[in-house]
Simulated assay, not measured.
Amino acid sequence: MRIRLDAISTPVSAPASQAGQVASALGAITMVAGFITFIETFRSREMDRRLLLAGYPRLPMLLAKLAAVALTAAALALYTTILLWISLPVHHTGPLVLALTGAGLVYGGIGLLLGSLVRGELEGFFLIIMLSLVDTGLQNPVFNTLMDVAGVSALPLYGVNQLALSSALTPHTPWSHGLLSLTWSAATGALALLVLHTHRPSRSPWSRRTSAQAG
Rank of each mutant, 00 (worst) to 15 (best):
1 M>R: 03
2 R>W: 10
9 S>E: 12
9 S>H: 13
15 P>N: 03
19 A>L: 02
20 G>M: 03
20 G>K: 06
23 A>F: 07
27 G>C: 02
33 A>M: 03
33 A>K: 09
35 F>I: 10
41 T>I: 07
44 S>H: 11
49 R>D: 06
51 L>Y: 15
51 L>P: 01
54 A>L: 06
54 A>R: 11
61 M>T: 13
63 L>D: 11
66 L>Q: 11
71 L>R: 07
73 A>N: 08
77 A>P: 02
78 L>I: 12
79 Y>P: 00
80 T>N: 05
82 I>Y: 15
83 L>C: 07
84 L>R: 08
88 L>G: 07
88 L>F: 09
89 P>H: 15
92 H>R: 11
95 P>N: 06
96 L>F: 08
96 L>I: 03
99 A>K: 03
101 T>F: 10
104 G>L: 02
104 G>E: 01
106 V>P: 05
113 L>M: 09
116 S>L: 13
117 L>C: 04
118 V>D: 02
121 E>C: 02
121 E>V: 01
125 F>D: 01
126 F>Q: 00
129 I>V: 10
130 M>Q: 11
131 L>T: 12
132 S>N: 10
132 S>M: 06
140 N>K: 06
141 P>E: 05
142 V>K: 03
146 L>C: 00
150 A>I: 13
162 Q>D: 01
162 Q>A: 02
166 S>Q: 04
166 S>D: 02
167 S>Y: 05
167 S>L: 02
172 H>A: 14
173 T>M: 04
177 H>N: 10
177 H>S: 07
182 L>P: 01
183 T>A: 15
183 T>C: 14
183 T>G: 15
183 T>F: 15
184 W>N: 11
188 T>L: 12
191 L>H: 00
193 L>Y: 12
194 L>T: 06
196 L>Y: 09
197 H>Y: 13
200 R>E: 09
200 R>P: 00
200 R>T: 12
